[in-house]
Amino acid sequence: MPPSRARATTALTLLLLATTACTTAEHEPRPAPHSPPVYGQAEQLRLPLDAYASTVAETHLVEDAQDILIRRCMNDRGMEWKTLPRVDPRDTQPPNLRRYGADEASAVRYGYHPRPDPPSVARRNRAWDERDALPAEIQQAAYGRSGTGGCLKTAQHQLVGDTAPPDYDAFNQLTGTALETARHAPEVRDALRTWHTCMAKAGFDYPDPFAAAGSERWETAEPTAAERATAREDVACQKSAKLVTVWAAAETRTQRRLIQQNADRLHEAKARKDRWLAAARRVLNHGGG
């Protein structure tokens, strides 16, 4: 079975605390170091630890380069290998879109449900599904019995030699710690209380935005009218409480402290990530597609 797919099991995805937050997307220009995040622009929200994360676009880049090398290896074994269709970088979501709760842009149409996959993402997902259904002998040649061997192992060695994969645990652990630590900052607790009072006045009893977004009521195939109404009120109360601005400012301070405390580990993780990316770009620039 394929060892990774960016849509579901990528090691680059942020592990959050019972949230539906998304953490990966293309790099975009960062705000000035001392500029506070602006509410209403969640799609542009950037946090200090983002510099040490890998985006979905970067995950795809490495997968695409490996795929070219896997195809060569499989062809040498007399087997065909269909490479994954490329994803338009514009189809990847921003890294912190739902980090503090509902996404304002999606609430009206989708409630708490994720937005539908754009066409290029859907095509790649279908290609992963097709790989899951490949005959056992093809999958074993490509990935070995363990899922990390076969032509994949050969491709990775050709790509980066003995360089270990990036240490994504460093980012995941620290960003989860930062989110939870900032959540308990006095100003964030005040903003959450303001949000809760606002929701209560509208007839909704949720302790925080994560509980609202994660309610079992929304486990439906399609968003319901009640879900959309709740999500709309949720984002309106977030806006009135200035929750995103307050929380992001508190977390920015926390993340900067954690970066200082873990500088060596983060530096090494970023160096390894950069080596993988540079190698992948060389293959894609010279190896075709």
Score class of each variant (00 low, 15 high):
Met1Glu: 05
Pro3Val: 08
Ser4Asn: 02
Ser4Lys: 02
Arg7Gln: 15
Ala8Val: 15
Thr10Pro: 03
Ala11Ile: 12
Leu12Trp: 02
Thr13Phe: 02
Leu14Thr: 11
Leu15Ile: 07
Thr24His: 03
His27Glu: 07
Glu28Gly: 05
Pro29Asp: 14
Pro37Leu: 08
Pro37Lys: 11
Pro37Ser: 13
Val38Met: 13
Gly40Val: 13
Ala42Tyr: 00
Leu47Phe: 03
Leu49Trp: 06
Tyr52Cys: 09
Leu61Asn: 04
Asp64Lys: 07
Ala65Lys: 14
Ala65Val: 12
Arg72Gln: 14
Cys73His: 15
Asp76Tyr: 02
Met79Glu: 14
Val87Met: 12
Val87Gln: 11
Pro89His: 08
Pro89Phe: 05
Arg98Asp: 09
Gly101Phe: 03
Tyr110Ala: 07
Ser120Gln: 05
Ala122Ile: 05
Asn125Ile: 14
Arg126Lys: 08
Arg126Cys: 01
Ala127Trp: 12
Trp128Phe: 14
Asp129Tyr: 00
Leu134Thr: 00
Leu134Trp: 04
Pro135Asn: 10
Ile138Tyr: 06
Gln140Pro: 00
Ala141Ser: 11
Thr148Phe: 10
Thr148Leu: 12
Gly149Asn: 09
Thr154Lys: 11
Ala155Met: 05
Gln158Met: 11
Thr163Ser: 06
Ala164Trp: 00
Tyr168Gln: 10
Ala170Tyr: 05
Leu174Arg: 09
Thr175Trp: 08
Thr177Trp: 06
Glu180Tyr: 10
Ala182Pro: 02
Ala185Trp: 01
Thr197Tyr: 04
Ala200Val: 02
Lys201Ile: 06
Gly203Arg: 13
Tyr206His: 12
Phe210Cys: 01
Ala211Phe: 04
Ser215Cys: 06
Glu216Met: 05
Arg217Pro: 01
Ala225Thr: 04
Arg228Ile: 07
Arg232Leu: 12
Glu233Leu: 13
Ala236Phe: 02
Ala241Met: 04
Trp247Thr: 09
Trp247His: 10
Glu251Gln: 15
Thr252Ala: 05
Thr254Trp: 01
Thr254Gly: 11
Arg256Lys: 14
Leu258Pro: 11
Gln260Trp: 00
Arg265His: 04
Asp274Trp: 08
Arg275Cys: 00
Arg275Ser: 01
Leu277Tyr: 09
Val283His: 04
His286Thr: 15
Gly289Cys: 06
